[in-house]
Nucleic acid binder design. Sequence first.
DNA 1: GTACAATCTGGAGTGACTAGAGGTTCAAGA
DNA 2: TCTTGAACCTCTAGTCACTCCAGATTGTAC
Lengths: 147, 147
Amino acid sequence: MLEAKKLERVVPIGGLSDRTGVKVETIRYYEQVGLLPPPERSEGNQRRYGRRHVERLAFIKHARDLGFPVEGIRTLLRLSDNPAMACDEAHAIAVSHLDEVRDKIAKLRSLETELARIAVTCSGGVKACDCAIIEALADHGQCGHGH
Amino acid sequence: MLEAKKLERVVPIGGLSDRTGVKVETIRYYEQVGLLPPPERSEGNQRRYGRRHVERLAFIKHARDLGFPVEGIRTLLRLSDNPAMACDEAHAIAVSHLDEVRDKIAKLRSLETELARIAVTCSGGVKACDCAIIEALADHGQCGHGH
DNA sequence: GTACAATCTGGAGTGACTAGAGGTTCAAGA
DNA sequence: TCTTGAACCTCTAGTCACTCCAGATTGTAC
């Protein structure tokens, strides 16, 4: 058992960073906020990570890439550590987040439309023109707030 | 002249907030970072805003609603105060921002696709199932980083 | 052994707000 | 005119998810 543990490949934080694509500083941050458990240390107090940390961090990164907030990931990790629990909660988290992403897409498309309208009215390059972009931004009728 | 100025309708910060939809605290913030010039004050040191401030803040709000960063808005405001300047810069700012918005939409749609895939594999509600969401997040093949 | 890159901790910054504490002013109503 | 409560003030610090920097130590290749 100890022998098996002794032979496990452990890496310093840079090695974990290389394996997961997560920055060194971000790894330390995740440890600080409790997403990643503190690893064992070398005699010189340097972090040494084994396979389980690699897997945990990969999970975290995948979830971050999908836009889950840190607190949501904390919940997902807890569920991950208790596979016998109902997956209602994981599903609720994912669906809620999916809704947020869809809302955001809708909003951004609306922004895109207006930005494209604004940008196209001023092709640029003409000195001393009255800038249509500035005028569009000053146009209260387009600012989405009733006056 | 002084008489005309005396008769201009001025409002306290709450009035400006009501007229523009921008929060009181956010108005103070914009003054602090220099987007909004400091207004005149009452004898009791309360801010008093006239029409020009209302217009300036409406401009800022419109630009923020479109997602322009504060520094970009600072530039747009400078251009707005100098209408004789070439509008190359305003155009460049708008187009650059439009590109960012388009990039973001593309990324979010990709996220939506994967989230929808993940969420649909676990309809939830079945106790003691192996949660497909957790497994999907743990699946290195899907995390966008080569191992 | 030497040198340099990697690692450590602690503190603070980023961007755009947002909240709270404790004190003052203002305006409406009695 | 007086009272009261909302609006206002400044200052400080928090939010979220990182990110950066300084100064010191460790580790590894040559």
